[in-house]
Simulated scan of single mutants.
Amino acid sequence: MGKVAFVFPGQGAQFVGMGKDFYEEFSICREVFEDANESLGIDIKSVCFEGPEEELIRTENTQPAILATSIAILRALEERGINCDYAAGLSLGEYTALVEAEAFEFCDAVHLVKNRGRYMQEAVPEGKGGMAAILGLEKSKLMKAVEKAKDYGVVEIANYNSPEQIVISGEVEPLEIAVNESKELGAKKAVKLPVSAPFHSSLLKPAGDKLEKDLDKVKINDLKKVVISNVAAKPVKTREEVRSNLIRQVSNSVLWCDSIIYMMDNEVDTFIEIGPGKSLKGFIKRIAKSLNKKVNTFSVNSISEFEKVCDFFNREV
């Protein structure tokens, strides 16, 4: 067995009921949710477990809810002696990776991401921007579609998720034009995403400016694990890099595909997605297939999946 990476999901992975089984099963998970409630001064636990969905999908609730759920599941894995060599997270998930690496205290992180969610939503009025996933179109052709649409306003690459999926983000009209142009250029599918803002585009720069002030007030520690940055697709070396990367991350492309390739090139052959959803596992499998690499992939969002991972590591030991 090679090296192990923990990867953490971002916004969009949430579902009502997430983390409830872990809360009921493990005292260490209960502590995480109770700490989140106390730190935020709201019942984020109930939002995770009971919804309603309208509350859960509010960006300023979604982000701390996913962070808390992911950390709770992480703590259960750590309690079983399962650890990683590398950590990374998609967008919001990078904060979870940094908590795992002890760069942030958990309570500081939930505050940061709650504010981050609010700043991101405030940066662009609802209905003025959006995002779309483009599937099955090579990067060079997608760039042509984006360049053509830029004549009508802001539209940019938001996420390089896998060789088969790239997400674009921007103002409504140019986004629509880029989607239609992508289809004409041969995209297998072009799907508008159910999000309320054009995340990871230059339109979100005001959110990064506000986040910078918050990050100045938070203690950032030396990292205890190797964390791969979204904006650079390489390890974060210093505390100042943590800060500057997170500010840039809000309005820059997420280099997820390159981040996974970096870890594969550095002997990672087991990836464990920790938190709600299972999109990251799918991306990783497609990236590995494109490189003809064999990897072990897990997505831990339920007790049954948790036990599968524990059994796998017991066999490897």
Rank of each mutant, 00 (worst) to 15 (best):
V250Q: 02
K224D: 15
E273W: 00
S202E: 05
H200D: 13
R286I: 00
S251L: 07
V226I: 15
N230Y: 08
L215N: 11
T238N: 10
K192M: 10
S253R: 14
I261K: 15
T270R: 05
N245R: 10
A190T: 10
L246W: 03
E267V: 03
Y262E: 12
I247R: 06
A197P: 04
I261R: 14
G282D: 05
A207P: 12
L203C: 13
K210S: 03
I260R: 14
K213P: 00
V218M: 14
I261P: 11
F271A: 14
A190D: 03
V236E: 02
G275D: 12
A190P: 04
D216Y: 06
V195Y: 11
S253K: 13
A187E: 03
G277Y: 04
F283S: 06
P235E: 12
A187M: 07
R286T: 09
E273S: 07
G208K: 04
I274D: 06
P235C: 08
S251N: 13
M264T: 02
K219N: 08
L255I: 10
K188E: 13
S201Q: 02
L223K: 11
V254C: 12
S202M: 02
S251H: 15
I228M: 07
N221A: 08
F271H: 13
V268D: 12
D265W: 09
M264W: 01
K217D: 11
W256R: 07
S229Q: 08
N252Q: 15
S201D: 07
H200F: 12
G275R: 07
L223D: 11
M263N: 09
D222H: 02
K237H: 05
I261Y: 02
K205F: 05
F199N: 06
K188Y: 02
K189T: 05
G282V: 07
K217A: 14
F199K: 00
K189Q: 12
E212Q: 08
V250F: 01
L280G: 00
V191L: 15
L215P: 01
V195W: 00
L223A: 03
Y262C: 13
P235W: 10
G277W: 06
F199A: 06
R239K: 15
P276H: 04
K189H: 04
